[in-house]
Design a binder for these strands. Sequence first.
DNA 1: TTATTAATTTAACGAACGTTCATTTAATTA
DNA 2: TAATTAAATGAACGTTCGTTAAATTAATAA
Lengths: 208, 208
Amino acid sequence: MARIAGSDGEVTRSEIRKVSLSLFAQYGYAAVSMRQIAGQVGVQASAIYQYYPNKQQILVSLLQNHMDGLLSACHEEITAKDPVDRLEQFARFHIRYNINRPDEVFLSYMELRSLEPEGFATIADLRSKYETVLKSILRDGIKSGVMKIDDPHVSTMAILAMLTGVNTWYRSGGRLSQKKIENMYASMVLKSQGIVPSDHDEKEAAHV
Amino acid sequence: MARIAGSDGEVTRSEIRKVSLSLFAQYGYAAVSMRQIAGQVGVQASAIYQYYPNKQQILVSLLQNHMDGLLSACHEEITAKDPVDRLEQFARFHIRYNINRPDEVFLSYMELRSLEPEGFATIADLRSKYETVLKSILRDGIKSGVMKIDDPHVSTMAILAMLTGVNTWYRSGGRLSQKKIENMYASMVLKSQGIVPSDHDEKEAAHV
DNA sequence: TTATTAATTTAACGAACGTTCATTTAATTA
DNA sequence: TAATTAAATGAACGTTCGTTAAATTAATAA
């Protein structure tokens, strides 16, 4: 046997991506073998090399893809002018985007260490760009006096950690709706930076 | 060559622990080989089996040890009666304890997936005990009306994620002292749960 | 001093690893 | 229909893996 009737490169490629993502997230990059991926795709290990030059490039490609999507979606969805509104939008966006991509998020945070120097630099740079989006919002909020923040870098990391943490416990079909979770996290994030909800709402109302 | 002059089982055992912890944290459990550990200890791979029956037990033992230490230290150090004070003590304790044990913390959060069922159950149970310490504080704070919390479970996970996140960026010798970092995180945690610092301070003062 | 125990070595096991290569068959193009 | 390209197979490569077993030497106890 060689080429299989009905085989399609595009389908196989996307199967490889899907399976690799799921296995890497579940067992860790190093613990997953090419044969294991191939087995779940329904193909021999050697067939994977038609699509990726090696195992490392599968990981790099998955992470690159995720970070690109995250960054472009965040630029699209965070549109407000006011820093407090932007912070709320950021919090909601982060929850909404990540909660449905648990495997990608897990990989992005856990397998940077499995990257060789070149891939590491690329992905770390994208992550840093994302952090800067949040940090800029906080800096604006400090400048305009509406946020009570000791150190914008620490606040950035604290907020991101809190939000990303949702993936450690959330499972779809659970007791809480995604919207409810989004609300709760957005509220905690705003309060953690010294924004009392009523304060901002009143100012907002007065402005109109 | 066989036994080496001056060799001591206790010393070798603790070297194996130290080296394994560091390598597992850096590269991940699956990516580290027994030969790699042995090499850094200065011994042959087979010598490790004098101390641990297999690779898995090294990991289990490291995690067990960390969680035991965390739990007993937290019970010792969180002594206040008032829920707000307890929450502040918890936040400060968590930062203080974890910030100087980055490898243990990283392992505890990342390598649960590398545990076989038995070890997993043991460690997951210890982690759950720790989460319950925080959750109980929040429940008390809700009951007494001093905390504005939508859902104690979500708040528990959010706080733990925020605090544990300190290890993703903190490096000793950096710009900020550990005490300063502890202060900032404690403040963000209290505010995130609807506790306005001045409120509590005033009540505290009024009580005396 | 002799016997025993502790700490380690060397050598080897079968299994699994990532990857390469020549080959085979299916689908598409000329 | 013939030639070419796409998609896969199966076998093999040298390496490394976790682990076991027997042998060897150092330290301790009798």
